[in-house]
């Protein structure tokens, strides 16, 4: 029983990270229809920025929290610049060109990161409040992991509320389904696209800052997540925000139990799951078949 609860919890923490990294990608794809390979590099840069601000503010009591906010702000600005300079010119391009251009950006951003921050792995010390462990019998839940879990939950709910319950959300959804109507109503669609891109970068940035609590800030941190994140995205349904949340939970839990029983093929299991979904239900668990082409 204790093992079960521990694995559920650690699986959910994994899910939260999956969700934070993938949701921005899903959002951009769902509204704009562009797959941004550089999303993961932005996630990594957010971690590095958090480290930089945290180091600059050393000694200050709320240094981590300030670094978190400053990094988010910095990433939003960076996202805005990238959108204006690059992304808005490729929304209409062919799929291959889009992938290749954003893939080239991965090369550029990764190397620039290495030039700025060097190749030593870095770490951000956890704030005092997040260093403890909540123990109860054989169950132990680290505070930092609980925080990451909550962060995933709050960001997810927040974005969902924005999409489903506000006027902005209605416009965003319309930007996908009635693209031609929006300009007719006097709503500038390119500004909406900019907003969506910045929002997706913000989600990546939150993921990057959250990651600094769990592991090392490192040049390889994005590579490891890339394929798994794509799988999460596909299983949930490309472009389906709620689907991404559901599939992040499924993948996280599958993984944390698979390592107990079939440790060597835990990763393969996620691929197989993705393959099955693609063959039998390409629009994913929560997507609609209308989005297929």
């Amino acid at each position: 029983m204790e093992l079960f609860i521990n694995q559920v919890f650690s699986g959910l923490v994994r899910s939260a990270l999956y969700f934070l990294v993938t949701s921005g990608l899903t959002l951009l794809f769902g509204v704009v229809g562009t797959l941004n390979m550089a999303h993961f590099s932005l996630y990594m840069i957010a971690s590095y920025l958090t480290w930089t601000f945290h180091t600059m503010l050393r000694g200050f009591e709320f240094s981590f929290w300030s670094a978190f906010i400053l990094a988010s702000a910095g990433m939003c600005i960076l996202g805005w610049i990238i959108e204006r300079l690059v992304m808005r010119h490729i929304y209409e391009r062919e799929l291959g060109d889009q992938l290749l251009i954003t893939f080239a950006m991965v090369y550029i951003l990764d190397d620039v990161t290495k030039i700025i921050w060097g190749s030593n792995p870095l770490f951000v010390a956890r704030p005092a409040i997040l260093t403890g462990v909540i123990s109860w019998g054989g169950i132990s839940l680290p505070a930092s992991d609980i925080f990451v879990l909550l962060l995933g939950l709050v960001s997810g709910l927040g974005t969902w509320y924005l999409l489903a319950r506000t006027r902005t959300g209605r416009i965003l959804r319309a930007a996908y389904s009635h693209k031609e109507m929006l300009p007719a109503l006097g709503i500038p669609i390119h500004r909406i696209y900019t907003g969506i891109f910045v929002l997706s970068v913000l989600l990546a940035s939150i993921a990057g800052s959250a990651w600094t609590l769990m592991g090392m800030v490192d040049l390889g941190q994005a590579h490891t997540l890339l394929i798994e994140a794509f799988c999460v995205m596909v299983i949930g349904g490309m472009g389906s925000f709620v689907g991404t949340a559901v599939s992040a939970v499924i993948c996280g839990l599958t993984y944390s139990f698979a390592i107990l029983y079939v440790p060597k093929i835990a990763t393969l299991l996620i691929f197989v799951l993705t393959g099955i979904i693609l063959v039998f239900r390409p629009w994913g668990l929560m997507g609609t078949s209308g989005r297929l082409h």
Partner: peptide, 8 residues
């Protein structure tokens, strides 16, 4: 992400 391995 090693949490699942650590708890196990």
């Amino acid at each position: 992400n090693f949490s699942s391995y650590i708890t196990a």
